[in-house]
Design a binder for these strands. Structure first.
Length: 912
RNA sequence: GCAGGGGUAUCCGAGCCUGGUCAAAGGAGCGGGACUUAAGAUCCCGUGUCGUAGGACUACGAGGGUUCAAAUCCCUCCCCCUGCACCA
């Protein structure tokens, strides 16, 4: 809508390089996490950058030398996977990308050729980073594009490598085994994106315990999530129709289902199949439970799923509804099995499973309600259960306290091994089964290191958070972060420096890159080659360690010294428990105290028409269409004003349109004033408008100092628009146009951070030839509150009169107003200090009841003008006009006997 | 499960940290009026209940409590949302 005007100023800013600062004066360094460049961005991404930009622009106008850079993230598998899909002619992916390209291209042939180029992942990253940059320019962000880079560049690889050398040197890297979701057919780990419905129905990894029951020359493995009930095991369940396997692993023989065997191949070492059986082979045979060596029977049950855990289930009929019902179905194996209670719960008998099953009238083992009941009993026993006398060293302990200990104890005594299973049956997008595999030799960032945690806690204590409550949340996250795998087998990114064949994972390579912004353009400008970024060089630049030959890098060192640390990092709450926290950890580890982050601003998420944006709902709004469809300034104004920064922001078309009307109103107010000049003979209402404007500016600045731009804009945009409307009501349109000229310069500067294009345009049309973007933010100046108060006072009287009219239904001919005399003022002042003394001074009933009113309405706390009569007299014409009838002030006439009832600040009123 | 956040009038959404000035900001919607040939836009008034004088009553998820006074502080319960690890 404004695209011509907006483009004009964007080009001017760009052409004059006004957002490309050099070290000079007091600095402010603000960053927003870079986006992943695998497609067009939507307005959700725009929220963080808009906030960042508004702050950047505000701080610039407050006299800071502001750096606001950005770059592009390309690390990881998604871009690779997209290129693969396009190469494999995956029609879904091709259509998706075709639709993305249509946002930017209208020539079908060109789209095809670009799609063709996407078979190379680098081209996807390059194409979209270029487009994202263009989109951002259309929103008017004051970004310093000289700092741009992407995370697969050799320069960046050197930087990340350096970081990992530092971390390794400090002992913050670790190596070990790690369970992951995995596809056997693809031979790859799979992430949420690779799993069918993985985004809506998450798959997590569940750690089962596979209990070892001695059977023939090996062990039957029975999976369980409740190891503490092992003491009450009475039998083992097997599915008679499933296929089972005898396998060798870890030097022992195991019996498990065929499916479990496949999983174990990826969880244990050197797993080998020896023989296959049908499930009924086991039925009626015996195995030995590991604790006491009791012989227990193996029985058949249809509820046993061979594709869940090991395919054998240990049976604890006293506490597991499934087991109880299955045993009941076979008449407790002709009475030879008796449930063994091992957990006591108050208010329940010995056999909770029996109780709950009978209470709910469960008929057989396929009843779907059994899942819920199992859950219920689990909760009950976990939180309120005590281990019985037959539980060895655990007897008498609370279940919730020893559950983990039982697990450890069983593993240590070789009674059981771990078995990992997915939380639900899952397949990849191409339909291949997902299992849990253990990665050997996985490298981790050791976030559990107490010394590292301590440093990070200290950092958090030294920082500012917006909103402040997030400080404690960060402490919490730091406390329970554990080892985090930091390398992957595939994807774009930086090679792991300590072992071939690994790539540093995408979140792990994006922790301290804000430091890189300070030097990247200098490296390029000076023709420095990536391979020159040796450990010595980067130690010098970032840590100040001198070395022979450091002269060449002096400029980079100085730039880092000047700009670092980041003063404010802005991003959405989604980054809290990952990126933001890693950002803090890594800074705490690597940089000196005075180079650690100073502030973090956490934004709420953005939804569209009341729902989370998603392709399936069709409510995703691409950033690319915003400037053209609405105008950048309208978008920015909406983002800033429609919700507090720390709450959910809902993009609603109807609300955008209604905001647009407000913006149009603003535009016409300004434009209508351009041809007028300021009046020289200032009147009462002129002073009112000037002073209320100053007051609004003052409040706005106070809000903005805490980055509360919404509140600030409510003052200087919405409320002030209302002030102007009120002024016009009282003084007329022409006068309004004239008087606005007095404050128009200040007003435009005040709004410039949020609506920079309009501000720039009007600033120039007012005859200035500087950029408003580089002007100083207005100062409020002295505020005369008496003018403001007197206007409010008159409005309160009007409100009272209207209320009386409404209730009484009188059609007024004459209105009498009486202001309070000195006597009542005196009593009020007394009441403020000493209520009982005031009552003593009351001379009569009327005074007494008025005093009561004063106290109950707390009139003495109101800002009450001294000269009430004069104020009303000055506005009497206005009052008459508003009520269209005669208004008589402090007349000798007193037809309603109201004169004596006047209170300070609350004149009495009589209407005929 | 673990952690965090929330439930406010027709709807969206402020306020609660620092209790009173809160029938509760700001929008949207709805009703009435002005303007207009009309529609739209804009502006004004109204929008819990009752009330022939500026008031009273009932209200801020439910239930208790603290207090002269609670949407705001404390306790219990119910419900909802977000993140949880290789996914950027």
């Amino acid at each position: 809508m404004n695209s011509g005007l907006e483009k004009k100023w964007q080009e001017q800013w760009k052409g004059k390089h006004i957002f490309e600062p050099s070290p000079d004066g007091k600095k402010f360094f603000i960053t927003v996490p870079y986006p992943y460049a695998n497609g067009p961005l939507h307005i959700g991404h725009g929220r963080a950058y808009t906030y960042g930009d508004v702050i950047a622009r505000y701080m610039r106008m407050r006299g800071y030398n502001v750096l606001f850079p950005m770059a592009f993230h390309v690390t990881g598998t998604p871009i690779l996977a997209i290129a693969d899909s396009i190469r494999n002619n995956n029609s879904e992916m091709i259509e998706l990308y075709r639709s993305y390209l249509r946002l930017y291209e209208n020539d079908d042939e060109k789209i095809d050729s670009i799609l063709e180029s996407f078979k190379d992942p680098k081209n996807i990253a390059l194409y979209f980073s270029e487009k994202i940059k263009k989109d951002f320019e259309t929103i008017g962000y004051s970004i310093d594009w000289r700092k741009r880079f992407h995370t697969a560049e050799p320069f960046y690889n050197k930087f990340v490598e350096w970081q990992y050398r530092k971390l390794h040197g400090m002992g913050y890297l670790k190596k070990g085994d790690y369970p992951i979701t995995f596809s056997i057919v693809d031979g790859n780990p799979v992430g949420e994106d690779d799993i069918k419905d993985g985004d809506t129905n998450k798959v997590t990894i569940i750690e089962f315990l596979a209990v070892k029951f001695r059977f023939q020359d090996g062990y039957i493995l029975a999976g369980t999530l409740r190891p503490e009930t092992i003491f009450g095991v009475t039998n083992i369940w097997v599915n008679p129709d499933a296929i089972y396997v005898k396998a060798r692993a870890n030097g022992e023989y195991f019996f498990v289902s065929k499916e479990a065997f496949e999983k174990l191949c990826y969880q244990l070492y050197d797993v080998e199949k020896i023989e296959e059986y049908k499930g009924d082979y086991f039925v009626g045979k015996f195995a030995k439970e590991p604790i006491y060596g009791r012989e227990i029977p193996i029985l058949q049950a249809r509820f046993v799923d061979p594709d869940n855990a090991t395919g054998f289930v240990k049976s604890v009929p006293a506490h597991a509804p499934y087991d109880y019902v299955a045993l009941r179905d076979i008449n407790f194996w002709e009475g030879r099995i008796k449930p063994i209670p091992v957990i006591r719960v108050l208010d329940m008998g010995d056999l909770p499973a029996k109780e709950i099953v009978e209470k709910n009238g469960i008929k057989d083992q396929l009843d779907p309600r059994l899942d819920e009941l199992s859950e219920e009993i689990y909760r009950l026993e976990f939180y309120h259960g005590i281990m019985g006398e037959n539980c060895g060293i655990f007897s008498g302990k609370k279940v919730s306290e020893i559950k983990e200990n039982v697990k450890d104890w069983m593993i240590q005594n070789n009674y059981a091994i771990k078995f990992y299973e997915t939380s639900r049956k899952a397949v990849t997008r191409s339909g291949n089964k997902v299992i849990v595999a253990i990665v050997r030799g996985q490298w981790f960032l050791d976030y559990s290191n107490p010394e590292w945690k301590k440093k990070t806690h200290e950092l958090i204590d030294s920082m500012n958070f917006y909103p402040p409550s997030f400080s404690s949340q960060f402490h919490d996250v730091v406390d329970w972060l554990r080892e985090r795998p930091c390398v992957r087998r595939r994807g774009l990114g930086t090679n792991f420096p300590f072992e071939e064949g690994w790539i540093i994972e995408s979140l792990s390579d994006s922790t301290i890159y804000t430091a890189f912004y300070t030097i990247i353009d200098i490296l390029r400008e000076m023709g420095i080659k990536p391979e020159e970024l040796t450990e010595d060089v980067l130690d010098y630049i970032f840590l100040g360690k001198e070395f022979n030959g450091m002269e060449r890098f002096k400029k980079a060192r100085e730039s880092f010294e000047y700009w670092y640390p980041v003063d404010l990092r802005v991003s959405s709450v989604a980054h809290l428990s990952n990126h933001f926290t890693f950002y803090l950890f890594h800074h705490a580890a690597i940089f000196e105290r005075n180079k650690q982050p100073r502030g973090i601003m956490v934004l709420g998420m953005l939804i569209s028409e009341g729902a989370k944006m998603s392709k399936s709902k069709g409510n995703v709004i691409p950033l690319a269409t915003i400037a053209e469809k609405y105008s950048a300034d309208l978008f920015r104004l909406y983002i800033i004003t429609n919700a507090d920064f720390d709450t959910v922001l809902d993009w609603r078309e109807t609300e955008v349109r209604s905001l647009d009307k407000k913006l149009e109103r603003f535009k016409s107010l300004i434009e209508e004033s351009l041809t007028y000049s300021a009046p020289t003979d200032l009147r009462h209402m002129d002073y009112y408008l000037i002073n209320i404007f100053r007051l609004r500016i003052k409040k706005a600045i106070e809000f903005m100092e805490n980055y509360r731009f919404r509140d600030a804009m409510i003052e200087i945009f919405f409320n002030f628009l209302n002030d102007i409307r009120y002024y016009e009501k009282r003084e007329g349109e022409v006068r309004r146009k004239q008087v606005l000229r007095i404050i128009i310069d200040d007003w435009i500067r005040a709004l410039a951070p949020v609506i920079p294009h309009l501000a720039e345009e009007y600033w120039h049309r007012l005859g200035h030839n500087t950029f408003v973007s580089l002007e100083r933010y207005p100062e409020p100046g002295d505020i005369d509150f008496s003018v403001i108060n007197s206007v409010n006072y008159v409005e309160e009287i009007l409100e009272d009169i209207r209320n009386i009219l409404k209730v009484s239904g009188i059609n007024p001919k004459k209105i009498y107003i009486y202001t309070a005399g000195e006597r009542m003022k005196h009593l009020m002042n007394l009441a403020k200090q000493d209520k009982s003394r005031a009552f003593k001074e009351a001379r009569n009933k009327i005074e007494y009841s008025l005093l009561k009113q004063i106290i109950s309405q707390r009139l003495f706390d109101k800002i009450c003008p001294e000269n009430e009569e004069e104020i009303i007299r000055n506005s009497i014409e206005y009052i008459k006009k508003e009520l269209s009838c005669e208004v008589i002030l402090n007349s000798e006439e007193d037809p309603g006997n109201k004169r004596a009832l006047a209170l300070p600040c609350k004149p009495s009123i009589f209407i005929v």
